[in-house]
């Protein structure tokens, strides 16, 4: 039983990190119909920039703020100069964002070196609580709380603000939103910057969780985020958190029992969803 609970908590923590990465991706995908393969690069840059600031200042909070800032900045640059010229052309989007992803990853190695960087959580998030035979690692609990808080914040924004309403409408019918007098391109930019900031936050939070960061981490985690977007349904935040939790928990159990199949099982779930419900399990209705 203890093992089951521990694996579930591990899975939930991983799921929340994937959710933060996937949340931006699903909105960008759903609203802008943009296949952004550079998302993993933004995540990795958040991780490196945040960790650099964390190690420099010895303040974890400064690291988080730095990661979010770099995410917003890179989000702005990516949307304006990489994505905007290729709106509506998926082939070009894949090529240019994949290329940009490689550029971002290589730049990390140029700036911070090719070696892995070890990261530990701050002292106040190190250690664990013991409840009976169950060991709850503080940092994992912290990630779960941050993930849920972020979900609550995004959900509130989408449900109860005008910009959230426009984003939800835009996911369904972009052309109609424009015809109602709304500058959808500006909304695209805001959503892209917010998505990049969440990816960067996820990158920063994952560093102490994984223990090390490296130049190729972007693609590694972006694959999981894409799986979550497909399973959860494009543009659906609640679908994303449910799918991310599913992917995280399955990954955690598989990593313990059959580690070789850990990623393969998630791929298999994605394939089944694509076959029987290609719009995702929780897709928004038009």
């Amino acid at each position: 039983m203890e093992l089951f609970i521990n694996l579930t908590i591990n899975g939930l923590a991983t799921g929340m990190l994937i959710f933060l990465l996937a949340a931006g991706l699903t909105l960008i995908f759903g609203l802008m119909s943009v296949l952004n393969f550079a998302h993993g690069g933004l995540f990795a840059w958040g991780s490196y920039a945040g960790v650099w600031l964390y190690l420099l200042t010895n303040s974890f909070i400064a690291g988080i703020i730095g990661a979010i800032f770099i995410g917003i900045l890179l989000g702005f640059i990516t949307e304006k100069w990489i994505i905007q010229p290729v709106y509506g052309n998926h082939v070009q989007q894949i090529l240019i964002t994949l290329g940009f992803m490689i550029v971002l990853s290589e730049l990390l190695k140029v700036i911070w070196g090719p070696n892995q960087i070890a990261v530990t959580p701050p002292a106040y998030l190190t250690g664990s609580w013991e409840i009976g035979n169950i060991l709850i690692i503080k940092y994992r609990a912290f990630i779960i709380v941050v993930g849920l808080l972020m979900y609550g914040l995004i959900y509130y924004m989408l449900k109860h603000t005008k910009i959230g309403l426009i984003v939800r409408a835009g996911v369904i019918n972009k052309e109609m939103v424009q015809s109602l007098g709304i500058n959808i391109k500006r909304i695209f930019l805001y959503v892209f910057m917010a998505g990049a900031a969440m990816a960067a936050l996820s990158g920063m939070l994952i560093a102490p969780y994984a223990g090390v960061i490296h130049g190729n981490m972007g693609m590694e985690y972006a694959i999981l985020a894409f799986i979550v977007v497909v399973i959860g349904g494009m543009g659906n935040i609640t679908g994303s958190i449910l799918a991310a939790t599913l992917v995280g928990i399955i990954g955690s159990f598989m990593a313990y029992y059959v580690p070789e199949l850990s990623l393969a099982v998630n791929m298999l779930i994605m394939a089944v969803v694509l076959l029987f419900r290609p719009q995702g399990l929780f897709a928004l209705k038009g």
Binding site: K162, L165, I166, R168, A169, I172, N173, E175, M176, V177, S179, L180, I182, L284, K285, G286
Partner: peptide, 14 residues
């Protein structure tokens, strides 16, 4: 061009 997942009120508010 109705936003199907949005309520009538939300369609108007957009």
């Amino acid at each position: 061009g109705i936003f199907g997942a949005l309520t009538v009120e939300e369609n108007m508010k957009v």
